[in-house]
C-alpha cells in the first residue's frame, strides 16, 4: 500500500481533480470532503485495500495522510 496510489484512488473516490492533493492537506480544506465523500471513501478503502474503516476512524483523521495511515492499519 503506497501513498501515491492511495492519493490517486482517494481523488477518484471523492471526485476531486487528479494531482491536486498533497498528503498533508487538511481534510477540512478539501471542498469535496462531505458526508457523501466519506461514504465513497469507506467503499474505496474496503474495495481497494480490504480495509474496514469505520466512521469513528475517519472522525479522528485530520489530513489525507491520516486517512492513509488508518486504511493501512485496517487493511486485511
Amino acid at each position: 500500500m503506497e501513498l501515491p496510489s492511495f492519493i490517486k484512488g482517494f481523488e477518484e473516490a471523492i471526485e476531486r481533480p487528479a494531482g491536486t492533493t498533497d498528503a498533508d492537506l487538511p481534510l477540512d480544506q478539501i471542498g469535496e470532503w462531505d458526508s457523501v465523500s466519506v461514504v465513497a471513501f469507506i467503499a474505496f478503502a474496503d474495495l481497494t485495500y480490504n480495509a474496514a474503516v469505520s466512521a469513528d476512524d475517519i472522525e479522528k483523521c485530520a489530513t489525507v495522510r491520516d486517512l492513509f495511515e488508518t486504511a493501512r492499519r485496517r487493511a486485511g
Partner: peptide, 12 residues
C-alpha cells in the same frame, strides 16, 4: 441516519 456507519456495517 449515520450513513457512514451504515455503509461500514453493510460492507462488513
Amino acid at each position: 441516519m449515520n450513513g457512514q456507519a451504515v455503509m461500514a456495517f453493510t460492507l462488513r
